[in-house]
């Protein structure tokens, strides 16, 4: 058997590039390609909204200045300095505030049972208006 093989080989010319079997490689490559195409999933882009968290000091609340803007977040809406406002009104007020002073600190006081989404919505509204300083304090 080996002799006959040798004979065969001798008869043949040197192997050309085309003789390499490409089929398995292409199979594998296609498998990989199909895998990556199917597992590809567009991702959500995240934003990080920076807030300040003043230390929970019981005496600190009495020192608040009158010109401070305080927004309360309730499960069903917002109040600004104690006045109940709709989202549109609040956004208008925030735009006017930002026109006066974009570095105005907004004190946000969410109630414990308000959903977190409301707070983010408010932060988004403030950012939309151009305000960029938020302090979050907690209502007891």
């Amino acid at each position: 058997m080996p002799i006959s093989r040798k004979k065969k080989k001798k008869k043949r010319p040197a192997p050309k590039m085309e003789d390499i079997p490409l089929t398995p490689m292409i199979d594998v490559v296609f498998q990989l390609l199909v895998y990556f195409v199917f597992t590809f999933e567009p991702i959500d882009l995240f934003a990080h909204l920076q807030v300040y968290r003043p230390a929970s000091d019981k005496n600190a609340t009495s020192e608040t200045q009158p010109e401070v803007v305080r927004i309360n977040v309730f499960p069903d809406g917002y109040t600004i300095n104690g006045r109940v406002v709709s989202n549109e009104t609040l956004l208008n007020i925030l735009f006017r505030m930002a026109d006066l002073d974009p570095n105005q600190t907004v004190i946000i006081q969410p109630t414990v049972n308000s959903p977190h989404a409301h707070l983010i919505e408010l932060l988004d509204m403030c950012t939309n208006a151009g305000l960029n300083k938020f302090s979050i304090i907690s209502a007891d």
Binding site: E41, P42, I43, D44, L45, F46, A47, H48, L49, Q50, V51, Y52, R53, L119, I120, L123, D124
Partner: peptide, 14 residues
């Protein structure tokens, strides 16, 4: 730690 951020979706992946 003073750098507290809230995460939010800026743009949803389609």
């Amino acid at each position: 730690i003073w750098r507290i951020n809230f995460s939010a979706i800026q743009k949803k992946g389609t």
